[in-house]
Design a protein around this nucleic acid. Structure first.
Lengths: 220, 220, 220, 220
DNA sequence: TATGAATGAGTCTTCATTCAT
DNA sequence: AATGAATGAAGACTCATTCAT
C-alpha cells in the first residue's frame, strides 16, 4: 500500500547507495533553496555532493530523480519528527500541543519545507502522487487528533469540518515558511504559534466586544 | 508613489503595446499553467500569442519580463475585482461578505492565481518587490475591514492579531487554488466558503460540546 | 574608366539621395569608429542619421552598401584634400612638402582613416576592387612626384624602387592613424613628420658614425 | 611579471587542453582568414577543429576567447621564431640580417599575421592590452638591435629616432602581409626584402644624382 | 517619401546525459 | 565504482530586411 516509487541505481551496494544519496540530497537542498530546481545544474549538485557528474548518474537515472529524492526525504524527515506528536489523547489541550509541536517543526525545517513547497510542482506526473500521498498522510494526523476529540465528546464536528480544519492547520504551518518575507519581521515563532492557536480556537467571535454581543446574534 | 517597474518595449504605440502584451500574457498564463515557466519556451509563448518570436521581443527585453508582466497583470486583475468589496462598513457581516466575495474571485481566477503562486519565486530579485507589494496591499484590504470593525466596537483585537487574521484569510483564499488537488473532490466552492467562514468566526471552541465547556476555561 | 559602383536607391530625387546619404555616412562613421561595422546595427545607423530604419532602406539595398558608401566617401575626402598637393614640381623639396602635407591630412582624418582601414576587409568581393582602386590612385600620386624627381635628374631610381617608396610613404601616413596607441604618447604629429622625413631621406646610413665609415663600404 | 590573461577551460587535463586548443586555433585561423571573425560561427570552428560545439565550449568560455587564443598563439609563434635573431651583435650588418630574417618570417606566416592584424580590434577592452604588449615587445627587439649599434658607435641616433625606426621596420614587415594585394604582383619576397633594406639604409638621398648634389645641401 | 511593426533565419551558449577508461 | 571528456539537442535572443500604411 505504501509502496515507494523506487529510483534506479546502477550501483548495487545498498549501504553505498544510501550514503551517496544522502550527500546528494544535502547538496541539492541547499542549492535548490538558493536558486531553485531549474536553475541548478546536475554538475553543481554532483560538486556539492562531493563527487563527479559520472558518479552522480550511477545513483540516479535523471535530474528529476533528484527532485523526487529530495521531496521524498524532506517528507520523511517531517514525518519522522511528527511521530513524536501524541495523536491519540483526544483532548483540546493535546490538539493545541500538537499544533505548537508541528509549527515548531515547520520553523526548524523552514528551508526544506520551502524548497519542497516550491519545487514539488516540477515533479513529473509520475512522481507527484507519491509525494502528495505523504501530504495527505500528514494532514491525516491532524484529522486523527481532531477526530479523537470528537469521539471523546470534546468537540461536535462533521467530517468535512474536521477535514478542513486539519488542512488549515497544515497550511498555517507551511505558511510560516512560505510567507517568511511577510511574517518574520512581525512575529517570533512563539508569537506566531500563540496567535494562531488563539485565532484557531476562539474564532473571530471570540474577540467580539461584549457590549454589542446582543446585536450580532444573527451571525451565521 | 506606486511606481511600477516598467518593462521596456521597442514599439512606441502604447495602444499596440497593450494589445500585444494582452495576447502575450494570455498565451503565457495558459502555458505556464500547463508546464510552468521554465519548461515553456519563448517561441511557444510567441506562438500562443499569435505572433513571431521577433515580434515578441519587440515588446519585452527578456523572458523574465514575461513572467513579471504575467504576475503584474494577474495581481491587477485580482485587485480590480477586489475594488468591488465594501471595506468601510465595519461590521462583522460585511467582513463575512468580503471573505465570501474574495474567495469567489479566487475561485474564478484559480488558474491565474496558481500560476502566479508557483512561479513568482522565479522573478529576479529586481522584480520581486513590485509583486510582493501588491500582495501586501491586498492583505491590507482585509486589515482595513477588520480594523473598521474594531473601531466600530464590534471587535476587540490588537494589531498583531488583526494582521495575522488578514493573512489567514488571504492565504485561505489562495489555498483554494493551490490545494485544488486535495479540496475540489470534497467541497464545492460554496461549501468551502461556508465552512471556512464558520471556522474563522466560531473557532474550534465554537464547536465545543456544551457538556464539557467548563473543563476548558484555562485555554490560553 | 573611373566608373563607380553605384548603390541603388528607391528614391529618385538625386538631391535628396545625396543629403540622406550624407547624414547616413556621418552617423555610420562615428558608430563604426566606436564599435566597428559588425557590432553596429542598421537601426543605430538610421537613428544616428536622424531617420527611421524604413527610410534608411529607401537609400541603400543592404547593410554592406553603407560600408561601401562610407569607404568611398572617406577616400573621396582624402583625395579631395590631396588635390592641394603639388605633384608636378619634381624636386626633393616638393617631395618633402608633399609628405608633410599628406601626413597632416592623415592626422586630421585619423578617425576616418582608421575606420576605413579596419573595416574595408568586410566589403564584399564585389565592392572591394572599387575601394582598392582609390588606394592605388593615391599611391600613384606619390609615384608621380618621385617620378618627376627622377625625370628632373634629382634622383636615380628604378621603377620598383619608386613604387615601393611611394607605398612606404603611403603606409607611414596611415600608420599614424592605425598605430595611434603606440605613437601618440611619444610624438606630436609635427615630430612624427619631421622624424619620418629624416629617416626617409637620410636612411640609416645617414646616421652612421663618421669614424667607422670606412669599415662599412661593403654595405649592400 | 609577464602574466597572461588566462582563458578558462572546464577540462582539467592540461595536456588535453593544449591539444584541443591547438586544433581549435588551427581551424579558427583558416576560417578567420577566409571570412573574418564575425562571419565565422562557433559551430564552424568546432567542426573545423574536429569536435562538437559542446566540446568547444569545454575549452573556452565565449567566442571572443577563441579570438584571443588565436592572437595570442600567433604572437607567440612569431616571437618564438624571432628568438633565432641575433639581437646583441650591434653591427649594421646584423641589423640587415635581422630585418631580412624578420621579413622572411612575416612572409611565411602571412596568413596568420593578416588575421591577427585585421581581427585584433575585435578583442574586448579586456584582452586587447595583453596582445598589444606582445607587439611592443617585438618592436622592442628591433630597438635593442639598433641601440646596440649606437652603443657600439656604429650609429648616432637619438631615442626617438631609434624607436620610430624600429616601428617602421616592424610595420614594413607586416605590410608585406596586409598589402599583399598590391605587392605580390610586383615583388618576390626576396626582392621586397632587398629593396626595403636598400631604402631603409640609403634613404632617398642615397639615390640622389651626383650631378646635383651641391644644390641640395640645405636639405634638412 | 517616410514610417516602424513584423518577420524568422541565424547565433551563441548551456546542460542533461553517456560511455570509454 | 568512479571519473570526466564528449555530445548535440534545445533555448534565449538579435537583427537585417520587408511591406502595409
Amino acid at each position: 500500500m505504501n509502496k515507494k516509487r523506487t529510483v534506479h541505481a546502477s550501483v548495487k551496494d545498498e549501504r553505498l547507495v544510501n550514503m551517496r544519496r544522502d550527500q546528494m540530497i544535502r547538496g541539492a537542498v541547499s542549492l535548490f533553496k538558493e536558486k531553485g530546481f531549474h536553475r541548478t545544474t546536475t554538475r553543481e549538485i554532483a560538486q556539492a555532493a562531493g563527487f563527479s557528474i559520472g558518479t552522480l548518474y550511477e545513483y540516479i537515472r535523471s535530474k528529476e530523480d533528484i527532485l523526487y529524492l529530495v521531496c521524498d526525504r524532506i517528507y520523511d524527515q517531517v514525518r519522522a519528527r511528527l511521530e513524536g506528536m501524541d495523536v491519540e489523547k483526544g483532548t483540546l489541550k493535546s490538539l493545541k500541543l500538537g499544533i505548537a509541536y508541528y509549527f515548531n517543526i515547520m520553523n526548524e525545517m523552514q528551508d526544506e519545507v520551502l524548497v519542497m513547497y516550491q519545487e514539488a510542482k516540477s515533479l513529473s506526473k509520475d512522481a507527484l502522487p507519491y509525494v502528495l500521498k505523504k501530504e495527505v498522510e500528514m494532514v491525516g494526523m491532524f484529522e486523527t487528533i481532531i477526530l479523537k476529540c470528537v469521539e471523546n465528546g470534546e468537540l461536535v464536528m462533521e467530517e468535512k469540518q474536521i477535514d478542513l480544519l486539519a488542512h488549515n492547520i497544515f497550511v498555517q504551518g507551511q505558511m510560516w515558511g512560505f510567507r517568511r518575507w511577510a511574517l518574520k519581521n512581525k512575529y517570533t515563532i512563539d508569537e506566531y504559534i500563540q496567535l494562531q492557536i488563539d485565532l484557531l480556537f476562539s474564532g473571530i467571535e471570540g474577540f467580539q466586544s461584549q457590549l454589542k454581543e446582543g446585536e450580532l446574534y444573527e451571525h451565521s
